[in-house]
């Protein structure tokens, strides 16, 4: 597998910490793990494409995006709506894995409506093997 990079978008620092450790446990070679604490700064991260390509030679733009739903100011869904608008222009094609404590059907259905969302993980309800296989399957699909 090509070395891949990950962006974690979640307002909880502890959740970002936990996911980071889990990603390391999968033993998948990840060159970089980026973190954003809100939707707006995550968008910004993608919009500053040219600047960031130069800054992060290795691993920008991120291959995977782990996206939380419940964030203040701009939630996961609002981020996806905004991201759709800039996606084509910036030729971005990351794999988005939804990442939330919510296991409500409406949230799952709404998330998977976005073609860019390839998986949905419920915090605390998956193990390392599941995480690993979701990432492999998703990257095989692309």
């Amino acid at each position: 597998m090509n070395p891949i990079s990950v962006l974690i978008v979640d307002d909880s620092e502890d959740d970002r910490y936990i996911l980071t450790r889990q990603l390391k446990e999968t033993k998948i070679p990840i060159s970089q793990i980026f973190e954003c604490s809100e939707g707006a700064s995550a968008l910004r991260f993608f919009l500053d494409f040219e600047k960031n390509v130069k800054r992060y030679s290795n691993g920008y733009p991120p291959t995977f995006v782990f996206l939380d739903i419940n964030m203040p100011l701009m939630d996961g869904f609002e981020f996806l709506e905004e991201f759709k608008k800039i996606q084509v222009e910036k030729a971005l094609d990351p794999i988005v894995i939804m990442f939330s404590s919510s296991d409500r059907k409406e949230d799952v259905d709404r998330a998977t409506e976005f073609s860019i969302v390839k998986a949905y993980l419920v915090k605390g309800k998956y193990d390392i093997d599941q995480l690993k296989s979701e990432m492999c399957i998703s990257s095989d699909d692309t």
Binding site: S12, D14, D15, I18, N70, S101, S102, R104, K123, G124
Partner: peptide, 21 residues
């Protein structure tokens, strides 16, 4: 109800994982 149970669950899930670590 939705928000409350979500906001209650979140710290618990995180804490549980953290204690494992």
């Amino acid at each position: 109800s939705y928000r409350t149970s979500h906001d209650l669950k979140s710290p618990l899930t995180a804490s549980k994982k953290l204690t494992e670590y």
